[in-house]
Design a protein around this nucleic acid. Structure first.
Lengths: 263, 263
DNA sequence: ACCTTGTTGTTACTGTAGCAACAACATTTA
DNA sequence: TAAATGTTGTTGCTACAGTAACAACAAGGT
């Protein structure tokens, strides 16, 4: 009779998000460590009240995580972890798939119309979301793409997104340094930009170096990539004249300053 | 102001298993159909109480499913469905991954020992689980593998599992027909087996044709593949002398009958 | 200016469902 | 009989579902 050794809380949370309850997780974990246990043994190992063990085991069998013996008393055994997790994931994947198609049908009903994008400033959370928004901007560029960003950000997230930009579109990139081959496709400006480097404010406090950047397409759509101290990226996107003008000025001014050696 | 058209219940369930609540699902669906809606509009579209809309939207932003504008009043927009679903799946996948490794660590602690597999009859649910058990049996075969199964089952699930059987092990396969090339690796017995074909019982009722089969390894470990009328496969596995002997007799008898033309 | 009207965003409260936890009891096995 | 098994019912708890009310603010009319 092993002790109901306590289980890392993170593991319980993970299993919960796979659709298990606390008890189901505890019982499954307990069974992994003891093959062929009776219900009472499961209770002792997992710390789950004995009366609750029976319905929990039923559910776990239903979810294909444990198998049952035909003895009396019944004995239970856990499916190996990698396969058990896969059994759970299979259901979720299938739900995800059907949700995707059903949602997509609803989504296509409405055209891209609506005042959605005009004259509003949107905040976008999550790197993935920002990247797809940027990809959409670049793909639909008609005249110009202007980029002012830290090298870290460019290298990690940007360069591949710039591939789909049509050839007829001019691409200007401003950054503080460049490693590796310089692509001829873009007009590249490597400038020692103070705004892109470490900053002290107030004078005695060093602000952490962040990945950041601004992006302007066709002088009409702008995106600001920000990154909080926690490393969570977020962005502002807008087609409003106000923000576009601000970004326009920002890029121009910073470039001019750097060129003039103001630093 | 569109009607809060009711949403297919299956979709709500799918989204719930991806970690959303009912309200979160309704609001997200509503936003997919109306770009840049205010909180009140979201309330009208989704049918979610207006007061509940605010915390729900907060959570959706947190989960990277919607973006927010910086106007007053705030306006909200949904991330496109395929990407939204992927944002949800990313979290789940990562949970699954960490769960897998953590569980595996626990799992390896206990050796394969224990009375787990001896003298007990186990029921295994789910085709995947049965297949992995069979794979394990075949892989560890030392002398003989005997298979008596319907052709449907053999073709769909079995043949690839037999690949890892060591060369020194004799493999006997009994089935009611064979399509395609006959492998020389196995001793093959194609016999018109009544047990594997349609059966009437009682005389006027036709039992549905099922995929079924019995498997015997080294005369020591047996697995019975059953399939209920609902098509859900399940299996019995045992190393007990009783069941092994039963399967031993079953295979022998059936083969003898068929050979003698008893039909 | 003032009052009205309607909307926004927030807070508090009630109801409900599913799970967690406990107690008691009938049934079987030794 | 004693011990363990399997079942039922009750209670508490928590997160979500749903309702009501309110302060803050803007627009419009007199």
């Amino acid at each position: 009779m092993k002790a109901p050794r306590d289980v890392p809380n993170a593991l319980l949370e993970s299993l919960k998000s796979l659709g298990l309850t606390k008890y189901e997780a505890l019982v499954y974990i307990g069974l992994l460590r003891t093959a062929g246990a009776t219900a009472t043994e499961v209770h002792e190992i997992s710390g789950v009240p004995r009366a609750s063990v029976y319905p929990v085991l039923d559910r776990l069998v239903q979810k294909e995580l444990v198998s049952v013996s035909h003895t009396t008393p019944k004995r239970f055994d856990a499916v190996p972890p990698d396969q058990g997790v896969e059994n759970l994931m299979r259901r979720i994947e299938s739900d995800a798939q059907s949700a995707r198609t059903a949602l997509d049908a609803l989504y296509r009903e409405k055209g891209p119309g609506g005042r959605g994008d005009q004259e509003l400033v949107w905040t976008i959370y999550g790197e993935e979301n920002i990247r797809t928004r940027l990809a959409g901007m670049f793909r639909s560029a008609e005249r110009s793409v202007e980029v002012l960003a830290t090298w870290d950000l460019l290298r990690e997230s940007m360069l591949e997104l710039l591939d789909p930009v049509p050839d007829s579109v001019s691409v200007d990139i401003v950054t503080e340094r460049w490693e590796g081959e310089q692509p001829s496709r873009f007009r590249l400006h490597v400038l020692p930009l103070a705004v892109l480097q470490e900053i002290r404010f107030p004078a005695d406090k060093l602000l952490p170096y962040e990945r950041s950047g601004v992006f302007l397409v066709d002088d009409a759509r702008a995106l600001l990539w920000m990154e909080g101290a926690d490393g969570q990226p977020s962005a502002l996107y807008s087609e409003s004249a106000g923000l576009v003008l601000f970004v326009r000025r920002h890029i121009t001014t910073v470039t001019e300053w750097a060129r003039a050696g103001v630093q």
